[in-house]
Design a protein around this nucleic acid. Structure first.
Length: 386
DNA sequence: TCTGGGGTCCTAGGACCC
DNA sequence: TCTGGGGTCCTAGGACCC
């Protein structure tokens, strides 16, 4: 049974969305000039989050340090991200997509798949996709690319063809002509490391990969990934458009310092801050966690991490923080400069069955009270997957 | 130039149990 | 005394995505 899947991808999402707001305020359209969205441009560790097409043409790259981008492009217009506005733009765009098909899977804040099988009413899917793209542009003021394919993989690959404001198809029959000539790095799930490994083995294009017997790939990338790469390079993907939003499996927060830190007091303060954030988020989402992990990044970018399993799931900041402190003491020598500290929780459950222990820490009531006050002060910050 | 923040999944090795 | 497998859980590390 052949399917018709659309993948809708907002062009330079954060930059476009900031541009829409600025245009509404009577400011110039930053999409037309070299511009970027980034963190604090005065922080030397800020990186580029989104770039306009003119900026990209000058060599500005996503995830590049701002200082580096300024060197290649001194007139770069830099704007700060506005997350609340981005959330509104995302909702607006998802709602329009959903009106074309309720079988919608949000892939990220600025991307979704819709299953259009049997929903084009005899029209050419390209006509329908063009109408969808133009409706988003007309009503919301920003452009999208729509990729059309026989499955999610092909639709996603198609939306990445020429940008912006375009509709492309990549049907199964078009794979040899449109996908096989592309570099292997362009295939979804082939990142930098895998691409290096494959090219070292003489596999340069997606076509090369498609022709490679999967057995020969196992040694390079392991059995599971080998099978998947072989299927994907041949344009096959039977994964459905998932309408259910999956439950979170982990929650983490990390802080990169503007200067590397060595003072244990500073590190502990950072650990305290991320513990408060993580614990607050899981309480907000009614989770408890059974595993706590702590990670640090040294100034040479090497990382160390440690995790532990708790006797009982918890959402108490003090318990999470104490485990993290204990693990920090085990991995950090207390003197090496650190660039980042992070904390995560996983093995999340909604299990609120209270295991009453005769040995419950008498300080627990105090901890819970502290958390309630923290939550009241910090409100319920909503995030994108809400 | 000097590299953010937040996720998911997979693999490998060791412990432990039957 | 020495020998086997299989299954599950845990930890560490690495890859990918936006």
């Amino acid at each position: 049974m052949s399917r018709t899947i659309f993948h809708i991808d907002v062009n330079s999402a954060f930059l476009s969305w900031s541009a829409v707001k600025m245009v509404m305020e009577g400011k110039p359209d930053i999409r037309l000039v070299p511009s970027v969205v980034s963190g604090d441009p005065n922080d030397r560790r800020s990186i580029i989050t989104a770039a306009s097409i003119p900026a990209k043409k000058l060599g500005v790259k996503i995830a590049q340090p701002v200082s580096m981008a300024l060197r290649t492009c001194p007139d770069l217009v830099i704007v700060r991200g506005d997350w609340e506005w981005y959330r509104q733009c995302s909702h607006g765009f998802i709602d329009i997509c959903r009106s074309y098909s309720p079988v919608l899977q949000q892939f990220s804040i600025d991307e979704c798949f819709i299953d259009m099988t049997g929903r084009c009413d005899g029209e050419d899917p390209v006509t329908v996709a063009t109408r969808l793209k133009d409706e988003i542009k007309g009503r919301l003021g920003f452009t999208v690319n729509v990729g059309i394919g026989s499955n999610k993989l092909l639709a996603k690959m198609a939306s990445d063809f020429e940008k912006p404001d375009k509709v492309h198809t990549l049907w199964s029959g078009e794979v040899p002509e449109k996908m096989w000539p592309l570099e292997v790095r362009d295939l979804l799930w082939v990142g930098k490391k895998t691409a290096e490994r494959l090219t070292a083995y003489g596999i340069h294009t997606i076509g090369d990969l498609a022709a490679m017997p999967p057995g020969r790939l196992v040694r390079l990338v392991g059995p599971k990934f080998a099978a998947q790469l072989h299927e994907n390079a041949n344009g096959r993907d039977d994964s459905p458009v998932e309408t259910e939003i999956p439950e979170a499996k982990s929650c983490s927060a990390e802080r990169t310092f503007s200067e590397d830190l060595t003072d244990p007091k500073d590190i502990d303060r950072a650990l305290f801050n991320v513990a408060c954030i993580v614990a607050h988020r899981i309480r907000r989402d009614r989770f408890r966690a059974s595993t706590v992990s702590m990670f640090i990044k040294y100034n040479d970018f090497s990382v160390a991490q440690k995790q532990c399993t708790l006797d009982q799931p918890t959402d108490v900041t003090a318990i999470i923080l104490n485990e993290a402190r204990r693990m920090l003491a085990e991995v950090w020598d207390g003197a090496s400069p650190l660039r980042q500290v992070g904390l995560g929780v996983s093995k999340l459950t909604h299990d609120f069955y209270e295991q009453m222990s005769l040995f419950e820490d008498p300080r627990m009531e105090y901890y819970r009270d502290w958390d309630r006050k923290y939550d009241a002060e910090h409100g319920s910050v909503r995030y994108f997957r809400d």
